[in-house]
């Protein structure tokens, strides 16, 4: 049984949608699933802070990618970790007809609404992992020889399978929604 789920907002700063990802992660961690989720801190992860390494090795990770550049997914790929699921913000923005706005410091109302939708979708996947008794997550090991800069990256490193608009699972990771339920 999974005790906690790691939430990994892409960690970017340049794009407004990166703020959407970060705010959504706070909503999941503080409001929707408090004490049942943890947020991965990219700089701490790269620095090798123990709790951030354990977070992705011992618990399933939901990565929130804010853009087609897939920086969150790519970081996990480079360090040898397969996420349990990916939430892809552009899909959800398109599905709900919401824009990111232009303010990176504090989100504008429409982007705030998008962050709430991203948070709900992230929490939905995380809750399935937490409560589905048949969900079987196997611990992983981080590659310790990772030299991160300027590596070649495949376009779709985890061969993502779409479960719902904006929600994906790597093709070789177990399904988390109970059998027969709608994703």
């Amino acid at each position: 049984m999974v005790e906690r789920v790691c939430i990994f907002p892409c960690g970017g700063i340049k794009k407004t949608e990166a703020t959407v990802a970060r705010i959504a992660a706070y909503m999941v961690n503080e409001d929707l699933l408090p004490r049942r989720t943890m947020i991965l801190c990219v700089p701490a992860y790269l620095r090798g802070v123990e709790e951030d390494l354990v977070m992705v090795e011992d618990y399933p990770t939901v990565v929130i990618d804010c853009h087609a550049e897939n920086c969150g997914t790519n970081l996990l790929y480079l360090s040898g970790i397969t996420p349990a699921a990916r939430v892809f913000i552009p899909d959800l923005a398109e599905q709900h007809g919401l824009a990111y706005g232009s303010q990176r410091r504090e989100l504008e109302p429409e982007a705030q609404q998008l962050a709430e939708i991203v948070a709900r979708e992230t929490a939905r996947a995380a809750l399935a992992m937490l409560e589905n008794p048949l969900y079987n997550f196997e611990k992983q090991r981080i590659k310790t020889d990772t030299c991160l800069a300027q590596r070649g990256l495949p376009a779709d490193p985890f061969d993502y399978v779409q479960l719902a608009p904006g929600l994906y699972r790597p093709s070789n990771m177990p399904d988390f929604f109970p059998e027969g339920s709608d994703a």
Binding site: G12, K14, A18, E69, L78, R151
Partner: peptide, 12 residues
């Protein structure tokens, strides 16, 4: 200009 760590380590 802001340095974006995840873009940097992705090699953009």
């Amino acid at each position: 200009e802001i340095v974006d760590a995840v873009r940097l380590i992705s090699g953009f």
